[in-house]
Every structure is written in C-alpha cells, then in structure tokens.
Amino acid sequence: MSAAALTGRGRGPREGIISRGAAMLIMGVFTLYFLIPVWWLLISSTKTLGNFNRTFSLWFTPTSLSDFAANIGSLFTYGGGLFPRWMLNSIVYATVAGGLGTILAAMCGYALSKYGFRGREAIFNTILGGVLVPATALALPLFLIFSQVGLTNTFWAVFLPSLVSPFGVYLSRIYAASSVPDEIIEAARIDGSGEIRTFFTVAIRLMSPALVTIFLFQFVSIWNNFFLPLIMLRDQSLFPVTLGLYNWNSQVNTYPDLRTLVLVGAFVSIIPLLVAFLSLQRFWRNGLGAGGLK
C-alpha cells in the first residue's frame, strides 16, 4: 500500500481515507504548532502592558486597534528612532551581503564544477567541511582577528563574515554540474566570449533557480545571525534588529516598559522575512525541484 503510494505519484491506486486523514492531521498539528507563536505575537503587539497581563493571550481586546497604533508609534520613536535604524541595518546586512555572498558562492561553485585543476576536490572538501562548522563557533576567533586589524565595532565586522557561505558553494557546484551543459560553455568560447563574460551572461542565468535558493538561505541566516553582531558591535546605530531587540529584552526586569516594545518590534521584524519568502517562494520551489529531477 505505502509502496504503491510512493511509486504511483498520483496515477496509481488512490490512498485510503485513513492515511490521507492521518497525513492531514499531522500537517494540521504542525501548522498550528508553527503558527500559534506568530499569532500570539500579533495579538500581544496590539495590547498595552496592562492588557497584556490581564486579558486572554490569544484574542484581541476592544482597544486593540488604537493600542497597536500607539505601540507602533512608540516603537518607531523610542530612543530617537533606534528601531527603524536597526531594521534598515538588518535589511542592508541581509540583502547586500546576501546578494554579494550569493554571487561569490555561484562563481566559486561554477569554477569548482567546470574547471579541472589540481586540488579541486581538496578545496571542495574543505569548503564542504565548512558547512559543518557552526557560525557561532567562529564568532570569537573572528572577533580576535578583527581586533588585530581594528575593524571591530564597524559595519565591516558583520558584513564581511556574512559574505561567506560554504553551503552556497556546495549547492552552486552541484547545480552548475547538472544545469549548465559543457557544450554551451564550449559554444560561448568558440563565439569568442571570455570566461567571466560567459559566467555572467550564460551560466548565471541557467543557475538562477539555485541562486534564489542560496540567496534566501543567506538572507535568512544573516537576518537571524545574532551572535556575531553581539560579539562584534557596541555602537547602537550599527545593530541589526535581532541584537537591538535582545538588548531591550535583557532589560525588561528593570525597565518593564520595554516589554511592549520588544513584542511589537519582534512582530514588525518578521515582516521583511515574510515578504522575502512569499515573493521568492516560486523561484525557490523551481530551484529545488529542477535540481532533483536531473
């Protein structure tokens, strides 16, 4: 039964109502599991501190709309507009470093896939090893190195390490191998195109679904990267939004008014991620699927 369902892919015998129901149930439970915290965050950000403690956590209060507007207002003006500054920083770190990092990863993966040279596999395996090292473990060594060149507490301290994505290189190589035919590169060479031009005009287009995937991964991991900025940055105006909110949250014991700001801020800060995901989702699915079919 289950083997038939696996191989059938829609054309075979239909699944039983029980197994379908079970699948739906499991998915339903997981959907709730993932959505409830977001729902809670949305509701909480529409409450004053008093209502937050007193009223039911998963439903609005009669004054939710005006309270939400007031919360947003104080969020964006607190500390001379720190929050919008943090959002902007996060967007710059995530999009610019994510974009450049994606191109670097694509070039690297393409080169590893299309050029034969001594030590190619050794380099690739080393990069692959990099996938296994968590970014958190590298933050302290990076801090000590950046200290030596005097770059801590600067924009570059977060930007430069964010450019590197071993996983992106890995994915680019696999994808370039399967979706950029050698014949096309040959044809480009015969037509007199240089290697760099070939990459930017021909290969990069064929690889674009994978690049969207890499960009999304990079974007999310930079957006969520909290430990590196925590260690590197001291100047509030350089903070990404994650670190800024953490900063506020660490002080709610002594300054309880910050609690509302942390909740509203957390809610606002997931909006760019939602936008990025929803708008790039289509490409992303294509990317994963195309790689798998080859």
């Binding site: 925590l230 001291r234 100047d235 509030q236 953490y246 900063n247 949250n249 660490s250």
Partner: peptide, 10 residues
C-alpha cells in the same frame, strides 16, 4: 557611549 545587553546577557 557604546551599549550592549545587560551584563550577564552578553
């Protein structure tokens, strides 16, 4: 002035 989270938080 530079800032950070409260002492034990980082």
């Amino acid at each position: 002035v530079q800032t950070g989270p409260n002492g034990n938080s980082g």
